[in-house]
């Protein structure tokens, strides 16, 4: 008997997380030969990030693609995916997403009635400024920087020397415009879709961390599927990982080309800036690694990656 699962997410259709949902829908409907159908509810129709996560826990929403930072309020080991510098690049992300240590972290969600099918990307994060782009560590000093109010991000941006400022996402555009904020740490595709480039005039390609998301299913719903359907779900989730992650990389390149067209200054940090940033982050990374063996195992796996560039 074919099932239809409702998948809700919190972003607009231009965001990589929507792409994840669409790819999964295509893959699982093909692999299961129509036995598992997915109905996508984009753009907060079924609720915002926190509600969707709770919804999958409670079984009021079958599935979601939801950022790992939201899940860190349930399972602190999720912070592993966003420790600055740990995931080196998109190629590394695609490998680490299907690694054993990542799987162990995702499986901690089982005790919250959720099955995590896979880890995907919402876009590498960079640093957008109202004034000149930041070219050295000192440039961060005191910048009122919008971060999501999450402990890890507050720690990271305090360590970088900025003045981390939590603010509702909807207020960011006008806050950048009026100077309530000096900067925001953000992914390139959002700079494009939210038109942040109109009000902020410099991008520093810090690439400090990624914005991973997890594909989640309610445990009761998943257990209620036939073994064949479950297998199709897992296979589809696995199959789309690499293409999804690499598609975000391509998207980033398109945005960069567009920013160049618009003559928005984009700075690639030089070697000494990169080293200084890594040094500033070191105590934060070590503290989080020491706090949780799951996080440490993931970081060790990341260190063992062959260098790609």
């Amino acid at each position: 008997e074919p099932v239809t699962l409702r998948l809700g997410h919190a972003v607009f259709e231009a965001h990589p997380n929507h792409d994840t949902a669409v790819r999964f829908k295509e893959a699982v409907e093909r692999i299961s030969a129509g036995e598992v159908k997915i109905e996508i509810f984009p753009a907060r129709q079924l609720g915002d990030v926190k509600e969707l996560m709770e919804g999958v826990q409670l079984g009021t929403v079958d599935m979601t693609v939801n950022s790992s930072s939201a899940l860190a309020t349930l399972e602190p080991s999720m912070d592993a995916f966003q420790l600055p510098g740990v995931i080196p690049d998109y190629e590394g992300f695609a490998k680490l997403a299907v690694s054993e240590p990542a799987r162990r972290i995702m499986d901690t969600l089982g005790k919250h009635d959720m099955v995590a099918l896979g880890l995907y990307d919402g876009g590498q994060r960079h640093f957008l400024t109202v004034g000149e782009p930041v070219t050295a560590m000192e440039g961060f000093k005191g910048l009122k920087t919008r971060v999501a109010p999450v402990k890890l991000f507050l720690d990271v941006w305090s360590a970088a020397g900025t003045n981390p400022t939590p603010m509702a996402y909807g207020e960011v555009y006008s806050a950048l415009e009026t100077g309530t904020l000096d900067a925001v740490e953000i992914n390139l595709t959002s700079i494009e879709s939210e038109k942040f480039f109109e009000v902020a005039k410099g991008v520093t390609l810090t690439g400090h961390y990624f914005w991973p998301s997890l594909m989640l299913v309610n445990k009761g719903v998943f257990d209620g599927l036939t073994p064949e359907q479950q297998e199709a779900m897992r296979a589809a989730a696995q199959e789309i990982t690499e293409p999804q992650v690499m598609a975000v990389k391509e998207l980033d390149e398109k945005v960069l080309a567009h920013l160049a067209e618009l003559k928005v200054p984009v700075i690639t940090p030089d070697a000494s800036f990169k080293a200084a940033f890594r040094d500033a982050m070191k105590p934060v990374v070590e503290r989080y690694r020491a706090a949780d063996p799951l996080i440490d195992a993931f970081a060790i796996e990341a260190e063992a990656l062959p260098a790609t560039n």
């Binding site: 709770e54 826990q57 409670l58 309020t73 349930l74 919250h112 999501a148 109010p149 999450v150 402990k151 507050l154 939590p166």
Partner: peptide, 18 residues
């Protein structure tokens, strides 16, 4: 039921149980 099932979730900055 809702409050009990989400009790393990902590608030994002102060960390109290939701």
């Amino acid at each position: 039921v809702f409050a009990w099932k989400t009790r393990l979730q902590s608030s994002s900055t102060l960390g109290y149980s939701l």
